[in-house]
């Protein structure tokens, strides 16, 4: 099994998880790399992407697992050929063998930019910092069984809030991303719920890095 570390930025953030799988299947074909297929009645190319990313979120640490048929091609060459066959915004950073088991991903670092069209409200930095220092913080979460409430504090390893400029607060957080999973959107949802006057006009989100339970970089 091979693993590709890739990033998803720019306009490509609007491509959904399922569409991205299809996009990769075609990119492999364009690159002249034959994927192995699943067995069974309806064989499918064996590609899988760990931790589906929400539409609209950037990432610098996506993982794609795949297997190739035929003659072995070097990881370097796979990287180059795929990058020649992908769309703007989806870029392979490296391809490697013997990746760690996906279930060992535990945390991720994300950055959220909270944009305020007018100036950042007075005291927002301190107020938001204190919000995430509370003992518990119940936030609604949409799941298959409808909306449930979840305490997000145990899932936040660390969080900092800094002003980037007069209009933008940057939230850097290390959060649980598997068993249990905290969707970064819930961080801004917490602000909107508990401090509605600090609700930003727009929020962008970016995944920066993923970690093992021991908080070493996961690959």
């Amino acid at each position: 099994m091979l693993r590709a570390l890739f990033e998803k930025t720019g306009q490509a953030v609007w491509i959904s998880h399922l569409d991205l799988m299809r996009l990769f299947q075609r990119a492999f074909k364009r690159a002249g790399l034959a994927l192995t297929h699943t067995q069974g009645y309806n064989p499918r190319p064996s590609v899988s992407i760990a931790l589906p990313l929400s539409v609209g979120v950037q990432s610098h640490c996506e993982l794609l697992d795949f297997e190739l048929e035929g003659e072995a091609v070097s990881c370097q060459e796979i990287t180059e050929r795929l990058n020649g066959a992908l769309v703007d915004g989806v870029r392979i950073l490296k391809v490697y063998e013997n990746g760690d088991k996906i279930k060992n991903i535990a945390f991720l670092d994300c950055t959220m930019a909270l944009e305020y069209d007018k100036d950042i409200p007075q005291g927002a930095e301190t107020a938001i910092t204190s919000l995430f220092s509370r003992e518990n913080l119940l936030v609604e979460k949409k799941s298959k069984n409808g909306i449930t409430e979840q305490d997000i504090i145990p899932m936040i390893r660390q969080i900092t809030v800094t002003a980037k400029d007069g209009h933008c607060l940057v939230l850097n957080a290390r959060i649980c991303c598997q068993n249990p999973t905290l969707n970064p959107v819930q961080l801004s949802a917490a602000i909107a719920k508990y401090m509605p006057q600090l609700t930003p006009d727009f929020v962008t989100c970016c995944r920066k890095e993923i970690y093992t339970p021991e908080e070493t970089i996961f690959r």
Partner: peptide
């Protein structure tokens, strides 16, 4: 800012192969 609020935003962005 509008894109996250609509269904299937990828159809409005271009940038395909």
């Amino acid at each position: 800012r509008i894109l996250p609020t609509v269904q299937k935003p990828a159809r409005y962005t271009g940038g395909e192969f």
